[in-house]
């Protein structure tokens, strides 16, 4: 498998037609990946928080859900009006520290916010591995549509998303 282009916290990475995108060690963060069946382009943001609250969002738009989705569309060179042809994959948003006396529930709020924004853009979520109380890493192969999600103490989840993403694999 080709080297994985990893999106670190708050980063955005992309690939077109070939390549592997992924995130390592998602806790409350949400790996938000958009795929364009028409161009076979995928772009991934490692979203840390639901909403932007300072100018930091200008330099690292991938950090906040509210700025990450517009930034992903820009990277994909797609206007919001055409966004409904995209497919979304969401990974992460866990609450690792379950017994906190006060908690900001950031994982849950990240997942909710990304869902809300995707609904507004009429983008379907075709695969989701979110919430729960554990961390995750994942890799998505842009050429084949295979996704692998790893968690500690659980077997790796693998899914072939080629059909739902409209990927036609070339014969080997």
């Amino acid at each position: 498998m080709a080297t994985v282009k990893l999106a670190g916290m708050g980063e955005i990475v992309w690939a077109c037609g070939a390549g592997v995108l992924g995130c390592i060690g998602l806790g409350s963060c949400v790996g938000t990946l958009l795929f364009d069946p028409r161009t076979q382009m995928a772009a991934l943001a490692h979203v840390m928080l639901p909403e932007a609250h300072d100018q930091d969002a200008l330099t690292t738009p991938g950090k906040y859900a509210t700025t990450a989705l517009p930034a992903l569309l820009r990277v994909m060179d797609l206007s919001p009006a055409l966004a409904s042809r995209l497919k979304a994959i969401l990974i992460g948003g866990g609450e690792l520290f379950q017994n906190r006396s006060q908690t900001l529930r950031i994982g849950e709020r990240n997942v909710e916010k990304v869902h809300q924004l995707l609904r507004e853009l009429r983008i379907d979520v075709v695969f989701e591995h979110t919430r729960g109380s554990f961390g995750r890493s994942f890799e998505f192969d842009v050429a084949t549509g295979f996704i692998k999600v790893r968690a500690v103490g659980a077997s790796t989840v693998e899914k072939d998303l080629a059909a739902v993403l409209g990927i036609q694999r070339r014969a080997a």
Partner: peptide, 20 residues
């Protein structure tokens, strides 16, 4: 509060909450 998980997930969860 307690967690046992992959290092990056634990660390990032702590930091994201502190960063909020």
């Amino acid at each position: 509060a307690f967690a046992a998980d992959m290092a990056m997930a634990v660390l990032s969860s702590i930091l994201v909450e502190a960063l909020y």
